[in-house]
Amino acid sequence: MNKLIVEPPPHIRTSNSTGRIMLHVIIALIPAFAASVIIFGIRAAVVTVTCVASCVFFEYFFRKITKKEQTVSDLSAAVTGILLAFNLPVTLPLYMVIIGAFVAIVVVKQMFGGIGQNFANPAIVARIVLMMSFTPQMSSWVKPFYYKMSVPDAVTTASPLGAEVPPGYADLFLGINAGSLGETCALALLIGFVYLLAARVIRPVTPVAFVGVFAAATFFAGGDVLTGILSGGLLLGAIFMATDYATTPLTPLGKIIFGAGCGVITFAIRQFGTMPEGVAFSILIMNILTPYIDKLTRPTPFGAGTGKQSGKEMP
């Protein structure tokens, strides 16, 4: 007999893999990427490609110099790159994009042990760091289709959350408004959402709880619910960042609590805070609470406890 493999059972495995899950996420982000290029022009692609390339490079480089197994092929660095780019204004200088990628991959992800080990969402923290460090550049927004306009018209404008007169619902839904490059087009993000659900990559609970609680709070506070949902980074955050496996709770109940917490905090920051947007901070705060949520929502084992207290459970 030739050489035989001896391994622990099970001897068959699902064809699903980490790389495939990440590929699904990338595919789900393509509509939003296409929308960003249409709305903000070719520079949206330049920012995204720069961000992805730097993230992948930093991941490769860090694993190389720390002599760890390469993880670039699991595509998680590429996903982080796309998500970070989507959280940036299209006009951000490229060196700042690269700094953001460094923060996301090296500081937040790799220094905590790499994929699955980071406690906070790398793209979210990188966005916050950039916002603190380069406030003017991070809060300068251009009008949609500015690249088609003559120079004087392409001035910076306020994002819908900071604007005096908010844009109409149709424009908000299609993404024809100012904002970070991947967050404006609700339609494209929702297509991605449906794709992720169909591919069984995420469960609907987190985004539904996030958006639902935010909408309810806004409604009771007398705000414009639809504008609140469609503007800023709410949908991008709820669909793609609050569903990150590593930094959010494990169980469906935990995910509901996580999403609801994000909704409340986002509402509170937008309503009462000094910043116009609160999605990134809400997700970061809930990331930090995730271990506690996990502990509280641990599943109850089937048949746990003694039979003496409960007796027979009849059908």
């Binding site: 699955g116 496996y245 084992p301 048949g303």
Partner: peptide, 20 residues
């Protein structure tokens, strides 16, 4: 490869344990 905390093991456990 590294655990990505997807929670699928929990969702698959008939005994409702938390394998992760």
């Amino acid at each position: 490869s590294a655990c990505i905390r997807c929670g699928k093991c929990i969702g698959s456990c008939s005994m409702n344990l938390s394998p992760v």
